[in-house]
Simulated assay, not measured.
Amino acid sequence: MAILVVNQGAGWSQELYQATFDRTIPDRNHPPAGLIAHFGSPGETGGWQVVDVWESEDAFRRFLEEQVKPAAQELGAPPFESKVVEVYNSLIP
């Protein structure tokens, strides 16, 4: 079942997000296995947020552990929180 993931990082900026994105998804034509949709934006209370839809939690966790965390660590990024919920319904026109 598909999942919705909301990642929030208070100490993140647009520049840090973009640098991490560029390292983890260098070719937008070849997204990570299992990624359905990805959105990045400023957080409501500051920092940065990323909202993704993934085919499964396993696909998300694999990408997080193998790609995102190492890239963020190399860039000296602060920690961020991830909330995962199952998708009940979706519409992709």
Rank of each mutant, 00 (worst) to 15 (best):
H38R: 11
E57W: 02
G47F: 07
D58V: 04
A59I: 02
W54H: 04
E55D: 09
P93V: 03
N7R: 15
P78K: 03
P78L: 06
W54L: 06
V51W: 02
D58N: 03
W48C: 03
E57T: 08
G46N: 13
V50C: 07
P26F: 06
E44G: 15
E81D: 12
D27P: 02
H30S: 11
E86S: 12
Y88M: 14
S41Q: 13
L91W: 13
F21I: 03
P42F: 10
P70G: 02
W12L: 07
F39A: 10
V87M: 11
V84H: 06
P93Y: 08
V85Q: 08
I25C: 09
K83S: 12
G34I: 03
V6Q: 13
G9K: 11
V68A: 04
S56Y: 06
P70C: 04
T20A: 11
K83L: 09
A71C: 06
A59F: 04
S41T: 13
Q18G: 02
L16W: 02
P26K: 04
A72G: 03
T24G: 02
D27W: 02
S90E: 14
V6S: 10
G47T: 07
G76Q: 07
N29A: 13
Y17K: 04
G11F: 05
T45V: 14
S13I: 01
G40Q: 04
L64S: 10
D58I: 01
R28A: 13
V50A: 07
A72F: 01
E15W: 00
A59W: 00
A71W: 07
K83F: 10
E57V: 07
A37P: 00
K83A: 07
W12V: 00
W54Y: 04
G11N: 12
R23L: 15
A19I: 00
F39G: 04
S82N: 14
V53P: 00
N7L: 11
V87F: 05
